[in-house]
Design a protein around this nucleic acid. Structure first.
Lengths: 96, 96
DNA sequence: TAAAGAAGTTTATTTTATAAACCAAATTAT
DNA sequence: ATAATTTGGTTTATAAAATAAACTTCTTTA
C-alpha cells in the first residue's frame, strides 16, 4: 500500500493539539491545555487518559497549595510517535 | 484558540488518501483508488460519496466497453479545502 | 453557611469509520 | 448452455471514537 497508516492515537484533532503543545512547552497543566485547545474538561480528561495509557505522555498529579494540579509531559515514546506520524502524514500531503 | 479546526471531511485517513491521489493523478478510477489505498470497496464507496456530497470531488459514471466505470476527479472546491487543511495542519506540526 | 467556582472524572450520546452482506452484469469453466 | 466466479460496485449493520453533559470533591467568596 502506498499510504502508510496514520497512528490513530495521534490522528485526532484534540490529541494532536495536546501533543503539539507538549512538544513546545515541555510541561503543561490541565487548565492551560484546556484553554489553549478550547476543549471541554471532559473531553480533555478522556484524551489525556488515552495518551497516558499509551505512554505517549506522563501525567503527574499533585497539589498546588490546596488545589489539585495535573501536569502533563511528553515521553520519549510519545515524541517518537509524533515524529513518525508527521513523517507518515507527509506522504499524504507532499503531493506536488 | 490557537489551533485551527481541522476540516473533518479531510481529517480521515481514507478520504485524505483519496484526495491525495486525485491531486497527483487528476483523475482516477474506482478500482485504481481501491488498489492504491488498500481500502475495501464498501468503505471506499462511502467515503467517495461523502467527498462528492461536499463537492470536493466529482464522480462520473460511464461504461468501459460493457463494464461500469467510476471516475473521480478533484474540484476547485476540493483543492482549496485540501490546501486549507494542509495549512491548518501545519500549526499542529511545525512545532519547534 | 449558602452559593459559586475550580479542577477534574465518569457516563451517556452522537458521530464516524469500517466491514460484511448484498446486487447486477460479465466472464470463465464445465 | 448453464453453473460458478469475478468485477464493480452499493447498502446496511457493527464497532469504535469523539464529544459533551452530568456529576464529584474541595475551595473560595458572598
Amino acid at each position: 500500500m502506498m499510504f502508510p497508516t496514520l497512528d490513530p492515537l495521534l490522528h485526532s484533532e484534540l490529541r494532536l493539539a495536546i501533543m503539539s503543545l507538549l512538544i513546545s512547552d515541555v510541561e503543561a497543566e490541565f487548565p492551560y491545555i484546556k484553554e489553549q485547545t478550547g476543549a471541554t474538561a471532559g473531553n480533555l480528561s478522556v484524551q489525556i487518559d488515552k495518551l497516558s495509557a499509551a505512554d505517549y505522555i506522563k501525567v503527574e498529579k499533585s497539589f498546588k497549595g490546596k488545589k489539585p494540579c495535573t501536569i502533563c509531559r511528553i515521553t520519549p515514546t510519545g515524541l517518537k510517535a509524533f515524529e513518525d506520524y508527521v513523517k507518515a502524514l507527509k506522504s499524504y500531503l507532499d503531493v506536488k
